[in-house]
Design a protein around this nucleic acid. Sequence first.
DNA 1: GTTTCATTGACAGTATCCTGTCATTGGGAC
DNA 2: GTCCCAATGACAGGATACTGTCAATGAAAC
Lengths: 168, 168
Amino acid sequence: MTTTAQDATGDARRQELFRGTVLAASRLDGQLLAAAGELARPAGLTAAWWQVLDAVLPGPLPVAGIARAMGVSRQSVQRVADLLVSHGWAAYCTNPAHRRAKLLAPTAEGRAAVARIGPGQAAFAARLSAAMGGEAELAAALGALRRLSAALEAVHAADTGKPLEPGA
Amino acid sequence: MTTTAQDATGDARRQELFRGTVLAASRLDGQLLAAAGELARPAGLTAAWWQVLDAVLPGPLPVAGIARAMGVSRQSVQRVADLLVSHGWAAYCTNPAHRRAKLLAPTAEGRAAVARIGPGQAAFAARLSAAMGGEAELAAALGALRRLSAALEAVHAADTGKPLEPGA
DNA sequence: GTTTCATTGACAGTATCCTGTCATTGGGAC
DNA sequence: GTCCCAATGACAGGATACTGTCAATGAAAC
């Protein structure tokens, strides 16, 4: 460990770095959630609904599988999935591999709703890319996000030997 | 706008970039919140409480001011601030400049609680820094977070002419 | 075939944060 | 001095997500 008397200033510097990261990530998530919400609203969706619906566009998935893919708890996805189904955006299909774990699949209306978001999303993504100074910079920022996630995952795994995923 | 027929693949690429960013930011925020929560728990604090308490360590601030500094709504901070006061971690002081807008200040117990988190935070920050490959890499990632936030802010401001802060 | 365990869904409870609305306060416009 | 507006706090309501717990299901161990 580096927590020696000689390294007190290093500790303080890293603490500040960590606190700044927590703050920045919280702010960024809030901003992106708000932006996604505004993009999805004209289609009658919320940001969370969009995320779940988008996750099953490539193919049907069980609720728990969606949760794993998104890194959130099963219950959160379950709630949104039930809402999507009750609104007709998605439907549960029988799962040949598991009787209880029904597969969530988008309906035609669901696909149409996501498609309606497309143009606005493309325009916003283009503006964001431009504001970042180019696609390369945006891609680099995304890479940084993922490296941070991976590092956190690694640290947590080293601590507990368990993955960080909630509800796991 | 770049949304021409010729740039359809560019649109798709940027859309994917944007979706990936939303997903990664959400995941990262969740991970950092969980990590901060674990660090704060031994001191009897939650991640949200810690954030608010930490914001007033340098000096007393009104609730609305804390909210602005954190980029969240006044109501969220108000709720946490009331809880902090009711638990004795912080106290409201009279504000000479505004009778209603009392200033939130940490109590001695509050400062002690934050201080108790310090060592764990330093150790975790050191491990995170190591997992990122060094402090420089961690600092670079933080820079990327902030650039993304600033770009989102700029795009939103260009859209509405208003800052993105919630509850504003 | 039976037992055991992990996965999944369902439900209750809680934490966090947002929007909308209203009265109070303070400062600037007139 | 009066009026209007922005900022603030208080309150109600809703959205999102996590933990804990339980029963049902499927698969693996024996």
